[in-house]
Amino acid sequence: MSTVTRTAGATVEFRGLRRAFGATTALDGLDLTVEPGELLALLGPSGCGKTTALRILAGFETHDGGDVLVDGAAITSIPAHRRDAGMVFQSYSLFPHLTAVDNVAFGLRMRGTGKAERRARAEELLELVGLPQHAARYPHQLSGGQQQRIALARALALEPRVLLLDEPLSALDAKVRLSLREEIRRLQQELGITTLFVTHDQEEALSMADRVAVLRAGRLEQCAAPAELYARPATAFVAEFVGTMSRIPAERSGDGVEVLGRRHAVDGTLPADGRVDVLVRPENVRLTPAEDGPAQVVAASFLGAVTRLTVRLADGTTVKADLPTAEAAALPIGGRAELALPERPVLVDHRAS
């Protein structure tokens, strides 16, 4: 049984962090706090600055302004090898000439830890990640998932205050990725280590993280618990980046909007001018079979208990709706339907021109 102990968890703060590469701004005044012991996912499209933020925290990248603090102390002037952060990369980065146990113990050897102590520590960590029987194997004798577990154990060997994960699952196949993300989450909670997880995969972020920080063009759009981020996105960008959203043209009606023949209050701020769209998730769309309905079913995707239907409105707008599969059977391709939204405030955005 492993005797690896739980850590206290550090507080990490990005304060006004800025970084540019020539004319490209990677980080534009990032302000973000990671609470002790939480797993925070940095989510966003390629080029949004999430990996740059992680590399600055690790000491592998410099910054142009702002600061990074760990437990209240600025660390940006401290060399990478003294920052007490463990990092796991997408590419595993194991030493091919070392066995699994020696890969895990490598950092301890560089620190001058005695042979017996580092061997015992490495064996504990191999047990923690479920690979004690693979101690004598070399990287080429391990699967991708096993190699990534070894890389994770190596990152934990020095008992870092912060664990940094840079898209560690993206090179793995779907089944292994699912298993390993559950394993990483279990270990993170068991050890209580503050963890930053960079990913462009929204499913990974929502399923693993305590909170998710969505970045866009070097700025923080929203940071919230997964359920809040999904149900109450702060901006149209977050709404469309996290999960699936349909846009339905709407008309202004006082301080609300009229959409599909009904008036709705607005969740948030109504744009000051211009035409607007309502943003709606598939599970919030209601479809009812109707011979003369305004919506026509043009596609269906079976998802198990739910079937996702795509319908087209008279103006060419397409809307996705998730229905129980038994109900969706009454709406075949080419069938017509009435479409309605729940009677609650809706999120709106400027209509694309």
Rank of each mutant, 00 (worst) to 15 (best):
T3V: 15
T5L: 13
R6T: 14
V12A: 09
E13S: 11
F14V: 07
R15H: 10
G16N: 14
L17V: 14
T24G: 01
T25E: 06
T25S: 10
L32P: 02
L40Y: 00
A41S: 14
L43H: 07
G44D: 05
G44C: 10
S46G: 05
S46V: 04
S46C: 09
G47V: 03
G47L: 00
G49L: 02
F60N: 00
E61F: 10
H63I: 08
D64P: 03
V68G: 05
A74K: 05
A74N: 10
T76S: 13
I78N: 03
I78D: 07
I78A: 12
A85T: 15
M87L: 15
M87P: 04
F89E: 10
P96R: 10
H97D: 10
A100F: 02
V104I: 05
R109C: 04
G112N: 08
T113W: 08
A120I: 13
E124Q: 15
L126W: 10
V129P: 12
V129H: 10
Q133E: 15
R137D: 03
Y138H: 15
H140M: 06
L142N: 09
L152F: 08
A157R: 00
L158A: 14
P160S: 06
E167S: 03
A174L: 12
A174Y: 03
V176T: 15
R177V: 03
S179G: 08
R181F: 07
R181S: 01
E183V: 10
I184Q: 08
L187C: 04
T195E: 08
L196R: 01
F197P: 01
F197L: 14
H200N: 01
D201W: 06
E203H: 11
S207R: 07
R211V: 13
A217K: 12
G218Q: 06
A224Y: 07
A224R: 07
A227E: 13
A231E: 15
P233Y: 13
F237Q: 01
F237A: 02
E240I: 00
V242M: 11
T244N: 03
M245V: 15
A250E: 13
R252Y: 14
G254Q: 11
G254D: 12
V257R: 09
E258L: 07
V259F: 04
V259Q: 05
R262E: 13
R263I: 10
A265V: 01
D267F: 05
D267L: 14
D277S: 02
R281E: 04
N284L: 11
P289S: 10
E291V: 14
G293W: 07
G293F: 09
Q296T: 15
A300R: 14
S301N: 13
F302I: 11
L303C: 05
V306T: 15
T307Q: 12
G316R: 04
V319K: 06
V319Y: 07
K320S: 13
L323G: 05
E327H: 11
A328L: 01
A330K: 01
I333Q: 11
R336H: 14
A337Q: 00
E338Y: 02
E338L: 11
E338Q: 14
E343S: 11
H350D: 03
R351N: 02
